[in-house]
Simulated scan of single mutants.
Amino acid sequence: MAGFEYVESWETDVELELLTKAKRDNQILIGHVHMLHTLDTSKVENENTIEPRTARDNMELLQIILENGSNVYCTAENFAEYDYRTLRDFVGTQQELIVSDINLETRIALVSVKAADAVNKQKFIERLKTLQERKELASQTFEGIVRGIDPRTNTVYIRIAGVDCRMNPNEWDWSHYYTWEIPDMVQRGEKIRVKVLSYDKESEFVRVSRKATIRDPYERIESLRNADRISGVVTKVHPVHGIFVQIEKGLDAKGMKLRHLPEPVVGDVVTCKVESVNPEKRHVKVMIHRYPNGKSTNQTNPTAFMFGR
């Protein structure tokens, strides 16, 4: 453990009293994950054997700052129900936690994010059961935080009140997306609004949708199709899959360009014409006719107010 020194969790009796009260009341606090420490435990002996511990040579420890400035610590095993390969990506995030131990001798307080998740999960599940019984579940909107993506299936995990809900990639929004696009669209830690599509009481499996909270841009597809020209923003230029242009918030069209025009880059504002629409497959193709603001990679996007980019 050379090179690592604990910062004491409290400096005043007032701070200690707050930590003590939070522990006694099982109160859920909010903390900012400030640092990740990796401690070498390969030479730490187990209490019940003289053999060195080899199951995990390095232990990750999160240093978390509470709203009142206190520094508390959370071990990897108390961070989540799941065993993450590393907690590195959680540095800089906000986490709900419960004070689990206060050592008066070392002046160190330990916390558990996993325990807070368990409390929140129970409350959330009870709420889902009640809403389902009242047939009100479909009308409710919840705030969640993107927890991560399963690279094998591109399933998006959304944490709502301690529950890791699942979202199919086509439920992110109304645009037509391909598998290769999902990791670039979704950012861990992003706060989003979702609706619950289904809830299974037996398995407590929850499936959610962000798309269900967004107006379907295809409601305006006829006016887009009939426009002589329409503005858009280039959102992707892929070496294999080509150009994509956002012509309406949540609607990315497959882009083509007139032969004499230079290649676009992401962020280019373009004027284009809708060439074809396939409502069943939700595919739109547009032809780029010009760059109204010229070609520049650093131009200000004048359509940001419309697309919310």
Rank of each mutant, 00 (worst) to 15 (best):
P151V: 05
Q95S: 11
F205V: 03
P52T: 02
R166D: 11
K195D: 06
F4E: 05
A304W: 07
R309A: 11
T235N: 06
E181S: 03
A161T: 00
L137R: 05
Q140R: 11
S223Q: 14
S209N: 03
T235K: 10
F142K: 01
H238D: 15
R53S: 09
F205T: 11
V274D: 09
I65W: 06
D164A: 12
W172P: 00
N103K: 10
E81H: 06
K201E: 15
I192C: 11
I160L: 14
M256N: 13
A115W: 15
A161Y: 01
T20C: 05
M167V: 04
I160H: 10
T235G: 06
H238T: 03
S198A: 11
V111Q: 03
D184Q: 06
L110E: 14
A118C: 05
H37M: 06
V7W: 00
L261T: 04
N78Q: 13
P264S: 08
E202I: 11
A118K: 14
I182G: 01
L87E: 10
F244M: 12
V265E: 15
V113D: 03
N68H: 14
Y291P: 06
D228A: 12
V284P: 02
L87W: 07
Y82E: 15
V245W: 11
V99W: 14
R210K: 13
R85T: 12
Y178I: 04
K295Q: 13
R24I: 03
T130Y: 02
E96M: 07
S209F: 02
T153V: 08
N293L: 15
W172Q: 01
E275N: 13
R159V: 09
R225A: 15
E11T: 14
I50K: 10
V119L: 13
Y157Q: 05
E202Y: 02
E5A: 10
S70I: 02
R229C: 00
H260N: 09
A138G: 07
P264H: 05
K257Y: 00
H241M: 10
R282A: 00
V265N: 13
R290K: 12
D200V: 06
A76Q: 14
E11L: 10
L137V: 06
L16Y: 14
L66K: 06
A227D: 08
T20Q: 12
N154Q: 11
D83K: 13
L62Q: 08
H32K: 15
K201W: 00
D89S: 12
G69A: 08
D25W: 05
S276A: 12
A22Y: 11
E8D: 07
A55D: 15
G232D: 05
L19P: 10
H34S: 12
L16N: 08
E45W: 02
P292L: 09
K254A: 14
D13L: 14
D150Q: 08
G189E: 09
R225E: 14
E17Y: 13
R282Q: 03
L16D: 01
K257S: 05
R24C: 01
P279D: 11
K191P: 00
G3L: 08
R220Y: 07
Q187V: 15
T300Q: 13
E67L: 04
E5H: 12
V265C: 09
K236V: 13
T213R: 06
Q27E: 15
H37F: 11
T86H: 05
M35L: 11
R85V: 10
V113P: 04
R85W: 07
G69V: 09
S209E: 03
W10P: 06
E8P: 04
L39T: 03
N48C: 09
H289E: 14
A55T: 08
C165F: 02
L128C: 07
K285Q: 06
P183D: 08
